[in-house]
Design a binder for these strands. Structure first.
Length: 306
DNA sequence: TCATCATGCCGAT
DNA sequence: TCGGCCTGATGAT
């Protein structure tokens, strides 16, 4: 799945191009027909990401809650404002294999179009589109989400309250809340970082990378993590998340601009340990190992992380 | 062409 | 701890 940075980018794209517009809401696939009918014709008034969840608020107070799960993605068409100056997201945002970014040439306009500007607008839905949000100029199609439901305001508030703090959607005392929840349990810190009620938005890649950057053994019980180290994990997560949102990809190493571009096609360039099983640790040379932790692949360096 | 895998999470056991 | 769900890419056949 898209980790937190991707969902924040989706929230921003929808905020730039669909918030403030009266939308046609439909479910071409049919599996969200009732929810779509409830939202159809309303003005979208807010777009917010908390962790990996997206909350879209409509003028009636109804909130569309979306979780992309492992496979979900949004496809954008029509008029799109670049999230990063000069870079227009084309195609999908969500499942990473679909991520595409096209750098616009000199002199091109700030506003780009979808993947095929010559096709009719709005485009015919392709595949299983659970929800289509359409303004006169922009279409957003949601495919393959694990959660997609309409909530009333109190239900939406409860859904947000179940999540831990998110550095990109800050709340009062967020850092202390994360420190407290991380250091009060005996569960392994490698599991706690993936627990969305401890801290929101971290997935399997950021989990492995944060632990390596902190030189922390993933098996360390949360209780044994000093508060200063838990705070440092929060601070580093805030940095990596902000950079991920800006760049539109997960980068946890300092890369030259050439390597940054090459990392689009060679993911092993952008991480310290994730997906580097058997390759020498970039710091000490020890082969990176992979093991299952709570049913997910955990990558780490047994020498650096002690 | 097929089997496997993936940045997730839930509920049953 | 496991299977189930959702979709597309990848590497093996």
């Amino acid at each position: 799945m898209p980790e937190g940075h991707t969902v924040h980018r989706i929230a921003r794209q929808l905020g730039l191009d669909l918030v403030g517009h009266r939308l046609a809401v439909s479910s071409p696939q049919g599996r969200f027909a009732a929810g779509a009918q409830r939202l159809d014709g309303q003005v979208l008034v807010g777009s917010r990401a908390v962790g990996k969840q997206l909350f879209l608020e409509f003028e009636s107070g109804d909130v569309l809650r979306v979780h992309l799960g492992l496979y979900g993605a949004w496809d954008f068409f029509g008029r799109l404002t670049p999230l990063t100056p000069g870079v227009v997201a084309r195609g999908s945002m969500g499942a990473p294999r679909l991520r595409r970014a096209v750098r616009m040439g000199e002199g091109e306009r700030e506003v780009g179009t979808g993947p095929d500007a010559s096709s009719p607008f709005p485009p015919e839905p392709v595949g299983q589109v659970r929800v289509r949000l359409a303004s006169r100029e922009t279409v957003a199609d949601l495919r393959g989400p694990s959660a997609c439901e309409v909530l009333d305001p109190s239900e939406a508030a409860a859904a947000v309250a179940r999540l831990g703090p998110d550095p990109a959607s800050p709340t009062d005392g967020a850092r202390d809340v994360m420190i407290d929840r991380l250091t009060s349990r005996s569960v392994a810190v490698g599991q706690l970082l993936m627990d969305q009620s401890v801290v929101a938005g971290i997935g399997n890649i950021y989990r492995a990378e944060l632990l390596f950057r902190a030189r922390l053994d993933p098996h360390t019980p949360g209780r044994r993590v000093p508060a200063e180290l838990a705070g440092a994990l929060w601070d580093d997560w805030a940095v990596l998340l902000a950079e991920g949102i800006r760049a539109g990809m997960i980068v946890t190493r300092d890369l030259s601009s050439e390597d940054h571009a090459r990392a689009l096609t060679d993911p092993t360039l952008s991480t310290w340990v994730y997906h580097r099983t058997g390759l020498p640790c970039l710091v000490c040379g020890t082969p990176v190992v992979v093991e299952a932790m709570a049913g997910r692949n955990l990558y780490w360096c047994p020498t650096c992380q002690q």
